[in-house]
Simulated assay, not measured.
Amino acid sequence: MREPTLAEKVADELTHRIIIGQLKAGERLRQEEFAHEFSTSHVPIREAFLRLEIRRLAISEPRRGVRVAPLESHDALEIVRMRGALEVMALRIQKGRPNTRQLAKVREALKAGDEAADLIAWEAANRAFHTALAELSLMPRLVSTVADLNIAFSRQVFAKMRSDDWKPRSNHDHQRIYDALCGGDIDAAVNLLENHIWAGERYPSQMQVARG
C-alpha cells in the first residue's frame, strides 16, 4: 500500500474536523491558514480542498472562497438509501466464505468498535467496518463511494448527537454480520446488513449511533 500524499493527509484531517463539527457548516476554509498549520505551500492545500469538494464536505463559491458545505435535512435520507443500495450490492458480490486475510480488516474494525471509549473513536470504527465489508467486493470505485457515503453519514450522526451523550456500547448487528461471513452464510450477512442500514430510514429523526 502506498504512502498517502500530503494533500491526502490534509484532506483526511480536515474531513475529520468537519465530521465532528470542529469545522462548522458555512465556515470559510482559508488556504493560508492551513498552509501555515501543515507547513506546506498552497498547492497541497488546494488539492485537499478539491478532495473535500468531491466528498461534498466543502463548496467553492465565487468571491466567497471555499466553505464547509451545509448540512441539508434531506441529505440523511439520501445517504441511507444510497448506502442501502451500494453496500448491500458490494457484499452480495462476495462468493463463498471470505478467507481469514480478507476478513482481517472487518475483524479489526469490529474490535475497535467494541473497545471505543468515546463517540469519535466509535464512529471511526463504524466507518471502518462498513468500508471493510465493501472491500470484500474487490471493486475499488465502489469501495471509494461507500467510504465517502459513510463519511457523510458520520457527519449527520455528530450533528444530531453530542459526544457527551454517548455511552460505551457493543454493536450486535456488526457482530452478527461478521459471524455470518465467518460461517460462509453470505445471504444471511446481506440480509443483516440491509436491515441494519435501512433502520436509519425508518427512524430518520433519531439517527442513533447504534443504527449506523
Rank of each mutant, 00 (worst) to 15 (best):
R2Y: 00
T5Q: 13
T5C: 08
E8F: 03
E8I: 01
E13S: 10
E13A: 15
L14V: 11
L14E: 13
I18N: 13
I18H: 09
I19S: 05
I19M: 01
I19R: 10
I19G: 03
I20W: 00
G21A: 12
Q22C: 05
A25S: 15
A25V: 08
E27D: 11
E27Y: 00
R30M: 08
Q31F: 02
E33R: 04
E33C: 01
E33V: 10
E37F: 13
F38W: 15
V43R: 15
R46T: 02
R46S: 08
R46M: 06
E47A: 13
A48Q: 04
A48I: 01
F49A: 09
L50Q: 15
L50E: 14
L50N: 15
L50D: 08
R51C: 02
R51D: 04
R51V: 01
L52N: 02
E53P: 07
A58H: 13
I59T: 15
I59A: 10
E61C: 06
P62V: 14
R63Y: 09
V66C: 06
R67C: 09
R67V: 04
P70W: 00
P70K: 13
S73N: 06
H74W: 11
H74D: 07
A76Q: 05
L77V: 14
I79F: 00
R81N: 12
R81C: 03
G84P: 05
E87S: 15
V88M: 04
M89W: 02
L91V: 07
I93S: 11
I93F: 08
Q94V: 15
Q94P: 09
G96Y: 13
N99C: 07
T100M: 12
Q102A: 14
Q102V: 00
A104S: 13
R107N: 03
D114R: 14
D114E: 12
E115I: 02
A116W: 07
D118Y: 06
D118A: 03
L119W: 01
A121H: 08
A124H: 10
A125V: 09
A125K: 12
N126C: 03
N126L: 04
N126S: 14
R127C: 04
A128I: 00
H130C: 05
H130W: 02
T131P: 00
T131S: 01
T131V: 15
L133W: 11
L136F: 01
S137H: 06
M139F: 00
L142R: 03
L142P: 04
S144R: 15
T145R: 05
T145I: 08
A147R: 10
L149T: 03
N150K: 06
R155C: 05
R155E: 10
V157C: 07
A159E: 15
S163Y: 01
S163A: 09
S163M: 07
D164Q: 09
D165H: 13
D165F: 09
P168S: 07
P168A: 06
R169L: 12
S170D: 12
N171A: 12
I177G: 03
Y178N: 02
Y178M: 11
D179M: 03
D179Y: 08
C182A: 10
G184Q: 14
G184I: 10
G184R: 00
I186L: 08
A188N: 11
L192S: 06
N195H: 08
N195Y: 01
H196F: 10
H196L: 02
H196I: 07
I197D: 11
I197K: 01
W198F: 14
A199M: 11
G200R: 14
E201A: 15
Y203N: 03
M207Y: 09
M207K: 13
M207H: 11
Q208D: 03
V209I: 14
A210Q: 11
R211N: 05
